[in-house]
Write a protein that binds this DNA or RNA. Structure first.
Ligand code: SF4
Ligand code: SF4
Lengths: 155, 155
DNA sequence: AGAAAGAGCACCGATCTGGTGCCAATTGAC
DNA sequence: GTCAATTGGCACCAGATCGGTGCTCTTTCT
C-alpha cells in the first residue's frame, strides 16, 4: 500500500526520543507513556532494532535502550530495513538469491520491472540520506536536499 | 509495507502496452494473454483507471481501452493515486478533511509527523515526474533526473 | 528476596490483497 | 435479429499482513 507500518513509526518515535541521550538507557515503558504507544508492541519493535544493532539494550531493573551510534549515522532507511525488510516496491526484486525461487511468474515478459527498480532506488536513496538527526532538526534535512535538488519547488 | 500492489503493477503494464497506440482500443483479454496477467483482475484495474480518466474505454465487440492522453502527460503518481489512493506513508495524513476523524490518537505528541510528510513529499514528487513515456524509454527518465539531480551517482 | 526491565514465542482479530463468479449493458459482425 | 465479444458492477472468497496482547523466562539493580 506504499505506507510505512505502525511498527516503523513507533520505532522512529522511540529513536527520535533517544537522540542526544547516549549512555542513558531509556525504558520502553517510559517511551510508551510519553507518546501513548502500546507498550508491549513498542518493546517488540525495539527488540528488532537491537537485533539490527541500531540500539543497544540493557536488561535488569534500570535497563532500557539507547542509540548504538550518533544520530547523524542512523538513517531512516536503515530503520525501515530493520523493521519491515528492504523496500521492494515490486514483488520480484529478490535482494538475496532466495532459494525458494519463483517470486513472479511473468518476469521475462514484464515491461515495467527495471523502470520500477529505478524508482525504488530513488526512494531508497532518499531514505538513506535522511538521518535521525535530520528528523529532529529539519535544517539538516533541507541541507541534504539542497545538495542534490537545487530547486525544491519543482513541477 | 512500502510496496506497490499487484493491481498497480498490472495497471502500469497495461498502460505501457498502450503507449503509442492512441485511437486503437486494446482489450483486457489481449493484454492478459500477452503478459500472463489474470484477465478479470486486470479488467477491474482498467475500470478504475477509466474512472480516473487515465484511459478511455469502449464497450462492445471491438471495444477495449486506450490512453486518454499522450504518454508524456500520464505520470506514475497519477496511476498509483488512482489505484491505491494518494500515498500516505503515515496513517495520519488526511488529504481530504475526512469527516470520520480520528486517524491516529497520538498526533499532538508525535515527533515524526512532519518529517515523515517531508519524505513522503519527495517520494510523491518522484512519482509525479516519472511519466509513462519515461517508463518505456529510459532516456526520458534520466533526462528528468538530470534536471534536478546533476550528480547521478551520489551518496 | 523482590521489583523492574528486556527476550522469546505464540496467539488473536481486523484489515488488506489477490483473485474469481455472475450477470447486466453495450456494440460490432453476420 | 442474433450472436459473440467486450466492458461495468457487485459480491464473494482464501490467504497474507498488521496491530496488538499474554505468558514465561532471564537479567540486573536495590
Ligand atoms: S516481474 Fe513485473 S509484474 Fe512481476 S513483480 Fe516484477 S515488476 Fe511486478
Ligand atoms: S501522528 Fe505520528 S504516529 Fe500517528 S500516524 Fe501520524 S506520523 Fe504516525
Amino acid at each position: 500500500m506504499l505506507q510505512l507500518t505502525k511498527r516503523t513509526e513507533y520505532g522512529l518515535i522511540a529513536l527520535v526520543h533517544m537522540v542526544d541521550r547516549r549512555g542513558d538507557f531509556v525504558s520502553a515503558r517510559e517511551i510508551s507513556e510519553r507518546y501513548h504507544v502500546p507498550r508491549r508492541l513498542l518493546a517488540e519493535v525495539l527488540k528488532d532494532l537491537a537485533r539490527a544493532e541500531v540500539v543497544d539494550s540493557q536488561r535488569g531493573a534500570t535497563g532500557g535502550y539507547a542509540l548504538a551510534r550518533p544520530a547523524e549515522e542512523v538513517t531512516v532507511g536503515e530503520v525501515v530495513a530493520a523493521l519491515e525488510g528492504a523496500p521492494k516496491l515490486a514483488g520480484c526484486e529478490t535482494l538475496e538469491p532466495s532459494s525458494a525461487g519463483g517470486e513472479c511468474d511473468l518476469e521475462p515478459s514484464c515491461p515495467i520491472r527495471s523502470p520500477l527498480q529505478r524508482i525504488r532506488e530513488g526512494i531508497w536513496q532518499q531514505m538513506q540520506r535522511t538521518t535521525l538527526r535530520s528528523l529532529v532538526e529539519p535544517v539538516f534535512h533541507i541541507t541534504n536536499l539542497k545538495r542534490v535538488d537545487p530547486e525544491s519547488t519543482l513541477i
